[in-house]
Design a protein around this nucleic acid. Structure first.
Length: 573
DNA sequence: GCCGTTTTCGGCCCGACTGTTTTCAGTCG
């Protein structure tokens, strides 16, 4: 059982306990446990009870459950709860406007077990007959059922960013003096966003009214003096929140989250005799406000340095902010080179010259041209002869547009871990990226061996998109991140943070493991056209979420220092 | 269920909105 499978069961236990009406703090403990397991970078199935209990939030009982799930794939406690409520009722919990109390009532009073049951109960008018429910509740449920499929799921960070930017542009035009800031998971830079929150100050409630007339709105979900929310075409839910100017800092902090970060802050506030909410920091004793106008001030009132939004996941940032050890995070502008891109030689749309010119416009000093190797026939991959000829052309225009060019390749890692081009060819290139593009259905041990064997080839410099995931489309192939990171540290092969918007691979969590173990990292666009360089910003955000500083990222170095740091130019240790 | 420079017991984050209601419960973020 992997972490996500364990997390799923713990979260289901939490949901079932909630429907059952159990102790809310017990529910929170299980839900929290699920989050901890899901976000944990290491395979928890390998830990014993002592190791598990060292993780904050995992106590005696949760450690026992995790052990049981890891070894048997199931859990007696979970089975007990399922006996009381069929697992199909959990689907109802996911409906907008339907919570645990409603689910419990519907199940107990009407015997509703499934979404289909629920629809039938609503259309036949049985729901409105229940005390505490009425025609509006019935209609709400029907609407939620109808839209469940269409609006289900999350969205890629860049999509959320673009949607938010369009809404902000619209609102700004209505209220030129207003200060509009996307908050929530978008501000934190999470790889996917469920909905979009936009914080407004310096405007009055009429702006919320104007928002409800935004042209891309499919349906207004709610409208008040402090908040309006709507579903946009394309399935985004957008919440616009209006707060008084002097609460801006507190509201920014509050609505940026994450929930776990905020809970940790409120915990800390309580310890200091303070109360933290979206209006400010207040002394508990006399309710006098001591901070809230700026975010800086809010953190300062809690004895903390301002925490970059990307770090606000309760992964150690509160402690670091408290003792002055927050890292100075890498920024997009620190990137001097881009090491992964394609041209018309394989499946790119632009020429070497075009890519160099676009790189110069993007402020880059050097780039590596890394077209595909022959195994990707679909992408017109290069064999040894073409690869070397291509390299000669690249070197022939080194310095074009003032950009230093490296002649490279993105070479396929074959299923047995050997490479798609021979060593003699690879040795003559300036940089070699190796990637998995086929045979994803291997087991964890095989895939780990495959990756490590490729990394042990002395001509390899970088592993491209190491996990192979496609966000919201395909899970990563199974592999042992710890072993791969260790191999990277041992061989000097860098691990890539690929900036394709649905890859972002390594993920923030894996990149942090790499950082903590001293494995070299690079941030690369994997551009397939001149527009692709703009994607570097997303990789920078992933890197920041992984606590990376410029020194952790090879391509923040000037050209000479960068090439000297490549594996092929390192002295064997 | 978790946790501990007050504590091994008694706490545990908080406010807005909605709908069904005459004072509040449920849901959401």
């Amino acid at each position: 059982m992997d972490n996500l499978a364990i997390a799923r069961l713990l979260r289901e236990i939490a949901d079932l306990l909630e429907i059952k009406g159990d102790n809310p703090f017990k529910i929170r403990a299980y839900r929290n446990g699920g989050d901890i397991v899901a976000n944990h970078p290491h395979d928890l199935a390998t830990l014993d009870a002592v190791g598990l209990r060292e993780i904050p939030g995992i106590g005696k009982d949760l450690a026992m459950r995790i052990l049981e799930i890891a070894s048997t794939g199931d859990c007696a406690y979970h089975r007990e709860l399922i006996a009381e409520f069929p697992p199909s009722v959990l689907d109802m919990l996911r409906l907008q406007g339907v919570g645990p109390k409603t689910v419990a009532t519907l199940y107990r009073e009407l015997g509703v077990r499934t979404l289909d049951d629920l629809e039938a109960a609503c259309t036949s008018g049985r729901v409105r007959a229940i005390r505490g429910m009425g025609p509006k509740k019935e209609a709400l449920i029907l609407k939620a059922l109808a839209e469940r499929k269409q609006y289900a799921g999350r969205h890629l960070l860049p999509d959320a960013h673009n949607t938010a930017a369009a809404v902000v542009t619209y609102l700004q035009a209505q209220a030129p003096d207003a200060l509009l800031t996307p908050v929530g998971s978008l501000r934190r830079g999470r790889e996917t966003c469920g909905d979009i929150d936009i914080l407004v100050t310096g405007a009055d409630a009429s702006l919320l009214e104007l928002f409800t007339r935004y042209r891309l709105i499919e349906r207004v979900l709610g409208h008040g003096d402090t908040r309006s929310s709507a579903l946009l075409q394309g399935g985004f839910q957008v919440d616009v929140r209006l707060v008084p100017d002097d609460c801006r800092g507190a509201a920014l902090q509050y609505f940026t989250g994450s929930k776990a970060h905020n809970i940790a802050l409120r915990d800390r506030a309580i310890g200091l005799g303070l109360k933290l909410n979206e209006y400010g920091v207040f002394r508990t004793a006399d309710d006098v406000r001591v901070a809230g106008t700026t975010e800086d001030e809010v953190y300062a009132a809690l004895g903390l340095a301002w925490v970059p939004p990307e770090l606000r996941e309760n992964r150690g940032e509160v402690e670091a902010a408290s003792n002055g050890t927050l890292p100075t995070l890498v920024e997009l502008t620190h990137l001097r080179g881009d090491l992964h891109m394609h041209t018309t030689a394989s499946d790119g749309r632009d020429t070497i010259e075009g890519m160099a010119e676009a790189a110069a416009a993007a402020g880059l000093e050097y780039i590596a041209i890394t077209d595909h190797s022959q195994a990707l026939a679909m992408a017109n991959g290069l064999d040894e002869r073409r690869a070397l000829a291509h390299a000669a052309r690249i070197r022939g225009i080194d310095g074009h547009a003032g950009v230093r060019l490296l002649a490279g390749i993105e070479c396929d890692i074959l299923p047995d871990g050997t490479l798609d081009l021979n060593d003699e060819c690879l040795a003559q290139l300036d940089i070699v990226i190796v990637s998995v593009h086929s045979a994803f259905n291997m087991d964890k041990a095989q895939m780990t061996d495959r990756l490590i064997r490729a990394m042990e080839n002395p001509h390899v410099d970088v592993v491209g998109h190491p996990s192979g995931r496609l966000i919201l489309r395909r899970e990563a192939y199974p592999f042992d991140i710890d072993a791969v990171v260790a191999a990277a540290g041992r061989t000097g092969v860098a691990l890539e943070i690929n900036c394709q918007t649905n890859r972002l691979d390594l993920s923030d969590i894996h990149a942090r493991v790499a950082r903590d173990r001293g494995a070299p990292l690079v941030i690369s666009s994997d551009a397939h056209s001149t527009r692709g360089f703009s994607r570097l910003r997303w990789g920078a955000i992933v890197a920041r979420r992984a606590w990376l500083q410029p020194k952790h990222v090879l391509n923040t170095r000037p050209f000479a220092a960068f090439t000297a740091g490549l594996r092929r130019h390192r002295q064997p240790s």
